[in-house]
Every structure is written in structure tokens, then in C-alpha cells.
């Protein structure tokens, strides 16, 4: 597993991370988002989708309907939320697995840690972990950790962190 942490002071820095990630995406990619309720998973995915050209106003919480699909961007995208399914869910009935790694859709999954190991096998997965700062003093402060075992994503971590550093963000950890 390789990756790095980004320390964010406010929402505009979170949005910059989203924009930089969007610039590195390709059809077939799978991004898993992990973090407490309110950590900003939906917000970050909305900003990434906006970076791909999707109308922001269309991106709402998929908690209720589980899977939302988007056609309006650079390539078709899927925004899923496993919150209500819980950790032991059988995903075969919700139609998400068919989208993952199909080479056409870019798939964003909230509560991605609920996916089983067999569901993830062989997929180009980037894990995105969102944390509140320890003190919770500033509501907009976040730590975002990017992690991946996928070789294709590991190659992209370098350009990603370079771009984030150019944007003035504080990064810790090795990416290669």
C-alpha cells in the first residue's frame, strides 16, 4: 500500500484536492471514500464530479437511493453510498458491482470499507480516507489520506502530490 496525507485548512483546499484528483481520472477507475458521518465524502465527490463536467446541482446524497448515475461529464460516472447496507451487505442485488471496473464508468463509493475483499479484487482502486482534525476546533479542517495498492494509481500518486504541492498544500508521507 502506498500513499500520502494532505492537511487541509479550509473547504477551498478540499476542493483543490478534488479538482486535482479529477484531472487524473480515467474511465474504469474506482474511488472508495471512508470517513465518519459529516466528514465530507459527498462534498468531495460532488467537487470531483464537477471537475469532470457534471452539473453540481445534480449531485445529492445517495444515501436513500444507494446508486446515482451521471452521464453529463467527461465520461459516465456512478456515485454510490453503502451506509445503509452496512458492513455485511450482499451487494449483488444493487447493481453496483456491474459498474465497477467495467472500463467505461468511473465509480465513487461512500462507505467503501463495506465492500468485501472479493468485490475489490483486481480493480484500479484509490482509497480516500477523510478525517476531522483532532481538536475539531475548525469545522473545515480535514486530513485526507490517499492510499492504493493498484500499480496504475501508484504511478499517478507522484503527479498528484506534485500538483497539490504546487497548490500550496501541506503533504506528508511517501508516494513512491
Amino acid at each position: 500500500m502506498k500513499g500520502f496525507k494532505v492537511f487541509l485548512k479550509d473547504r477551498s483546499q478540499t476542493d483543490l484536492v478534488a479538482k486535482v484528483i479529477a484531472s487524473q481520472l480515467a474511465p474504469g477507475d474506482v474511488l472508495l471514500f471512508m470517513g465518519d458521518l459529516g466528514a465530507g465524502k459527498t462534498h468531495m465527490i460532488r467537487e470531483i464530479l464537477a471537475g469532470l463536467g457534471v452539473d453540481k446541482a445534480l449531485v445529492t446524497s445517495p444515501t436513500f437511493a444507494i446508486v446515482h448515475t451521471f452521464e453529463g461529464g467527461a465520461f459516465p460516472c456512478v456515485h454510490a453510498d453503502l451506509y445503509r447496507l452496512g458492513p455485511d451487505a450482499d451487494l449483488s442485488e444493487i447493481g453496483l458491482l456491474e459498474f465497477m471496473g467495467d472500463g467505461k464508468h468511473c465509480v465513487f463509493v461512500e462507505w467503501g470499507d463495506y465492500l468485501g475483499e472479493s468485490d475489490k479484487e483486481g480493480l484500479p482502486i484509490l482509497e480516500i480516507w477523510l478525517y476531522f482534525s483532532q481538536e475539531r476546533a475548525n469545522l473545515e479542517e480535514r486530513i485526507i489520506e490517499l492510499k492504493t495498492e493498484d500499480l496504475g494509481w501508484q504511478e499517478r500518486l507522484g503527479p498528484l502530490s506534485d500538483e497539490l504541492k504546487r497548490g500550496g498544500l501541506h503533504i506528508e508521507g511517501t508516494h513512491s
Binding site: 444507494i66 451506509y83 445503509r84 447496507l85 452496512g86 451487505a89 450482499d90 451487494l91 442485488e93 444493487i94
Partner: peptide, 11 residues
């Protein structure tokens, strides 16, 4: 038991 509607159970 699950803290929410479980769609797979729901269907």
C-alpha cells in the same frame, strides 16, 4: 437492527 433501511433486505 441495522440503523437504517437495508435495501437488499427491503426488496
Amino acid at each position: 437492527h441495522y440503523g437504517g433501511v437495508v435495501p437488499e433486505l427491503a426488496s
